[in-house]
Amino acid sequence: MKNIQIKASSFFELLKAKDTSMWEIFAQMIDGEEKEIIFLDEEEKVLFNYFLPDNLEKLEQDRKTFAEQYTQKLSGMN
């Protein structure tokens, strides 16, 4: 499995500037090999990680699960 380290703040700024979603970027990274994407802060400390699947179907499942969990967390904040 390949490990990919990404500076979180730069990554999300780039997504905003290009008006694209992280899921679109992740889809472009799929090549049949599972990858661990490690998001780092400015001090190179691990913020979180994501295991990029090896196919688009699993990525779509992950996107749906993320959206559901995100919605639940937002509704819990109200």
Rank of each mutant, 00 (worst) to 15 (best):
E24S: 13
E60W: 10
E68M: 09
K58L: 10
K2C: 11
N3Q: 08
L14I: 09
L47V: 14
E36N: 14
Q69H: 13
E42C: 05
A27L: 15
K16P: 01
I37F: 00
L59P: 14
K45A: 12
M29A: 10
K58W: 04
E34N: 13
K58F: 06
E44D: 15
S21P: 04
I30H: 13
S21I: 06
Q28A: 13
K45F: 02
A8C: 01
K73M: 13
D62G: 03
E42T: 10
K73E: 05
I6F: 00
V46N: 04
I37R: 08
I37T: 02
N78P: 13
S75C: 04
Q61H: 05
W23M: 00
L14P: 04
I38Q: 09
N55Y: 03
D41K: 10
K73F: 05
K7C: 05
F26M: 02
F11S: 06
K45T: 09
W23P: 00
I25C: 11
I30L: 11
E34D: 09
L56D: 14
T71K: 15
Q61W: 13
K64H: 11
L59M: 09
I38D: 02
L52Y: 04
D19P: 07
D62S: 11
E43P: 04
A8I: 00
E13H: 01
D41T: 03
E34F: 07
E57R: 12
T71D: 10
I37H: 04
E57L: 06
Q69K: 15
F26K: 01
A27N: 13
E36G: 00
E44C: 10
E60K: 14
Q28L: 15
I4G: 08
D19C: 10
E33K: 09
E13Y: 00
Q72E: 12
N55T: 03
D41H: 11
A67L: 09
M22N: 04
E36H: 12
Q69S: 11
E43W: 06
K73W: 03
L52Q: 15
I25W: 03
E36V: 02
S21K: 01
